[in-house]
Amino acid sequence: MTDRVEAETAQSTRRTLKPTPLAQATLAIAWKDLRSELRRRELVAAMLVFALLSLLIFSFALEVDARSRAANAAGILWVTLVFAGTLGLGRSLGRERDQGSLEGVLLAPIDRSALYFGKLIGNFLFMIIVAVIIIGPLSVLFGISLFTPLLPLILLLGILGYAGVGTLVASLAAYTRGREILMPILLLPIALSILIPAVRATRAVLEGAAYSDITIWLNLLLATNVVYIVLAYLLFDFIVSE
């Protein structure tokens, strides 16, 4: 199944084959990215080291007193994740462009949005790995326990939304001159609409706020997620079509 996605056979089989179902093609692309990451281990490693470094810098730069601890920890968690995420997103389609494998994927008899969703799954998983690992050091450095039952849900939704809009914007940036510089500039103002509810929900959870104070942000986060992913599904075709 994976081989079918790769470039060699794709061109000749385009007419004779029925398109691979969307889910199957998506998983194939995601699995390809994961497997290449498992072999090289360069992307997640870089994201992780960057995230740990920025945690350390935050712990030096900010004097965190007991009162503002929850608010600070929520902000630091998300800023670190978002910046580490831009590293991974910048490579996601960029690597395909550099190696010329993007044409191969585009020639494959698959729905174009499979490429988007496949890349989204990859970026999402990489960021989740980073998030899971930095929660421990963050708790230790800032003296606050992040192991609360609602936090995984907020992390899942926030990272999904960020990776969702990030994959789309990174695909735009992949075709531009100087994409490494342009990518964060394009992505961060957009990502703020995900970041605000994510930070606020995290903060409410850490401060032990009332359940309704948390769910209002979670609902907003859910709404942004749905809208961005539907938009990306509709718009991604326009990016890769020549």
Binding site: V165, L168, V169, L172, L186, P189, I190, L192, S193, V227, Y228, L231, L235, F238, I239
Partner: peptide, 10 residues
């Protein structure tokens, strides 16, 4: 055009 749609949504 794509970016302007995403930007307006955000």
């Amino acid at each position: 055009a794509i970016y302007v749609i995403i930007a307006f949504t955000s």
